[in-house]
């Protein structure tokens, strides 16, 4: 009864894909939602995909109780340093990281549930001037931190019970690393974007910095979201949060750029632009597989198929307030894609795509 169909509002009448509202949850105690994510939670032999919401001072875990009904399982109180973002650990269970700080990330904490003694805990993982952090497969976290003299790029891995194991250091590039992305299909490769608009490649096993490739002046201030290796090329999905609209490039939210790691040359493959006639530009977004979602300055959420370079669905801003967050949920392969769209008042809507 609560589900409603929201057909994509596209001027050319495309209705191939749509977003179906599955359920809605509202954190009544939170007046300012900062981030939203998902986390597998296993207790008493039951494993469920739960929603994690963050406000400035706490992070809450929500489990599904029934159709359109969510119950708050636990809230981690995080003290005086504000939460900046949730850093999910893909494929992990009962574990998630959270980044805290003022303007920049000052510390990363691990939030965990111990099924052995049915208790929720948190522990400090890293402190410093942290510029970027990403959860990797196999319960690992990579982060870059900077002092005046040097940059550290480090990986910490966790056991199933959340204990930190020996870390690994990756060779840092000269420039500050602004974002990381795993390379799909290449377990030992990691890419990053830097403050001077380069893409770098590491070998995760040895820590070697393998290559630095300039993205090109037509794609300013790039942030990497995802990478794929195919046919000897490295395809990197980039967004440009600070880019201005230009006549030559239009107003793209995401771009797929092909790099030849052997020669460091690159070429743009596809640009995923805002729907025609839609004002505003990219604010923030998320990529999973070939799907990208972004919040636009208009308050709308747009979804693109990156293989087609086409906007396939759009959530209008709504009568009250616009959307603030758009994240893809971790899901089983059989359940398809699920979009989490969040509003600043703490309302999170789950859409099946």
């Amino acid at each position: 009864a609560v589900a409603e169909q929201l057909a994509p509002v596209l001027p050319d009448g495309l209705r191939e894909e749509s977003l179906q509202l599955v359920s809605k949850l509202k954190d009544c105690s939170s007046s300012c939602a900062v981030d939203v994510s998902t986390m597998w939670w296993e207790a008493a032999g039951c494993r469920e995909l739960c929603v994690v919401t963050a406000c400035e001072s706490s992070v809450s875990l929500w489990k599904p109780l029934g159709p359109n009904c969510w119950g708050r399982v636990y809230t981690w109180q995080l003290g005086e340093i504000p939460v900046i973002q949730i850093v999910p650990l893909p494929d992990s269970c009962n574990l998630a990281c959270v980044a805290l700080g003022d303007l920049e990330i000052g510390e990363i904490r691990l939030l965990l549930y111990s099924s052995e003694n049915d208790s929720f805990k948190q522990s400090l993982v890293r402190t410093g001037n942290i510029k970027a952090a990403l959860g990797l497969k196999d319960r690992r976290l990579v982060s870059s931190s900077r002092t005046v003299q040097e940059q550290h790029v480090e990986i910490v891995s966790f056991s199933e019970t959340g204990r930190s194991r020996d870390g690994q250091t990756l060779m840092p590039p000269e420039e500050t690393v602004s974002a990381f992305a795993e390379v799909e299909g290449m377990r030992d490769a990691l890419v990053g974007t830097t403050a001077v608009n380069s893409v770098v490649i590491w070998n995760l096993k040895t820590g070697q910095l393998l290559k630095k490739m300039h993205v090109g002046y037509s794609y300013p201030a790039s942030i990497c979201h995802q990478a794929y290796s195919d046919s000897g090329l490295l395809f990197v999905v980039l967004s440009h949060p600070h880019a201005k609209e230009s006549e030559s490039c239009g107003n793209p939210a995401f771009r797929v750029v092909a790099f030849n790691p052997s020669t460091a040359r690159s070429s743009g493959v596809l640009a995923s632009s805002l729907p025609p006639g839609h004002a505003g530009r990219y604010l923030e977004g998320d990529v999973r597989g070939a799907l990208a979602a972004a919040v636009l300055t208009s308050g709308a959420v747009a979804v693109w198929d990156l293989l087609l370079g086409q906007c396939t669905a759009l959530l209008p801003p709504g009568p009250a307030r616009g959307w603030a967050l758009a994240r893809w949920a971790s899901t089983d392969a059989c359940t398809g894609a699920c979009l989490l769209a969040g509003q600043r008042d703490g309302t999170v809507c789950l859409y099946r795509y």
Binding site: M186, Q208, L209, S231, L233, N260, P261, S262
Partner: peptide
Amino acid sequence: CSESDLGPISLNWFEELCAEAPP
């Protein structure tokens, strides 16, 4: 994009870069 834009492509680029890069 064509090979002429990007230069010669190697299917084993990762292994080759690992062999070339400083340890």
